[in-house]
Design a protein around this nucleic acid. Structure first.
Lengths: 184, 184
DNA sequence: GCTTACATGTAATAGGTTACATGATTCT
DNA sequence: AGAATCATGTAACCTATTACATGTAAGC
């Protein structure tokens, strides 16, 4: 999904400014599977306006960078529908954490364990963030997605918590086969 | 992680050509959280060679595009270690599927359900792919990651399978509040 | 008074993806 | 003989990130 479609999707919930779109995208559920900066949003909104997909009106002309509210047009709505109807392109995950973990054998055991602890803390934060934003009950899809998010984060968290100590043992056994110093 | 680090990591398992690196990256476990094309790999290897991080030797000089084997140098190894020791930057997931699902209320229920079925099939394929590649028992980190992958895919799959029918019901109830045609 | 949040936009850069270009070898 | 796989590389393009540039309003 390109930034234009992203903007259209957010605008389908109601008119908004570029700044507000960015804020919406920063919060769950969007922040869980998308990320975009101002540098992508503003140009996208301009092109969308040129193409007639959104109607832009200056809301606060007195203010210097006037707040520009963008509203979906019929053209924009049908474009969004079309984009959404396409077969979704495969997920793209870039995870430095997972990548590092895969090569954890090259690193000092303590460092690996620290990274896992940090990840556990992050997942806890994300999970409570997800749980905090209750989906609207009138949207079956939002409810479904909410549950999926909870399952995903909860499952990973659970795994990390339950297998951390085993990894710690195995790692220390591998790094000290004979008998180095035991504790630090 | 940029492509250069990716190449160094693959080369830490042993010398390889650019083509072989690409193949390795296409398979689990790498393919689960990374993706890179030839257009990124070959330039990266050239720069790595210029920087002295890898030693490149033409393996089959008779063949026209000679097979070029790249081997990690000490410089390359310490560079890899350094990159791996950094605090991992946050995961970046771009999921058209999740994005579409979030806006599923705008789409015909049947289309949403079809997408979920397709996703279930994809996840089944990925899970069996992950389960097929048994990690080396001597690498605690690889074993840990393998378990994490299984937990992740298994958990998502389980959720989708168990909640699909509920979503179908809710979606049809929402789209036909009174009494449209029942079946198609 | 200072800092944070609001608010928009441009320009430079870096990076990756796609398409192109070429050719050998192996399998069917 | 033809297709698929092996094998490397360049160039164009597209996109996103980053830094820059500017200014207001609200809260501390």
């Amino acid at each position: 999904m390109d930034t234009k479609t992203l903007c259209l999707a957010v605008l389908s919930r109601g008119p908004a400014s570029g700044y507000e779109i960015k804020k919406t995208l920063e919060q769950p559920p969007y922040c869980l599977f998308q990320d975009t900066g101002f540098g992508s949003i503003y140009p996208a909104l301009q092109r969308l306006n040129e193409d007639g997909a959104v109607a832009t009106t200056d809301c606060t002309p007195t203010r210097r960078p006037a707040k520009r509210i963008h509203a979906l047009t019929d053209e924009g709505r049908s474009r969004l529908l079309e984009a959404l109807s396409q077969a979704p392109s495969p997920d793209r995950l870039r995870s430095d954490f997972l990548f590092t973990l895969l090569h954890g054998d090259l690193l000092p055991p303590d460092l690996v364990l620290e990274m896992i602890d940090a990840r556990i803390a992050e997942l806890e934060a994300k999970l409570s963030q997800v749980e905090a934003c209750e989906p609207r009950a009138d949207s079956p899809c939002a409810v479904f997605l909410h549950g999926l998010g909870r399952t995903h984060y909860g499952g990973c968290l659970d795994y990390l918590r339950r297998n951390r100590s085993k990894l710690a043992r195995d790692l220390n056994a591998a790094s000290a086969p004979s008998s180095k110093r035991a504790a630090e």
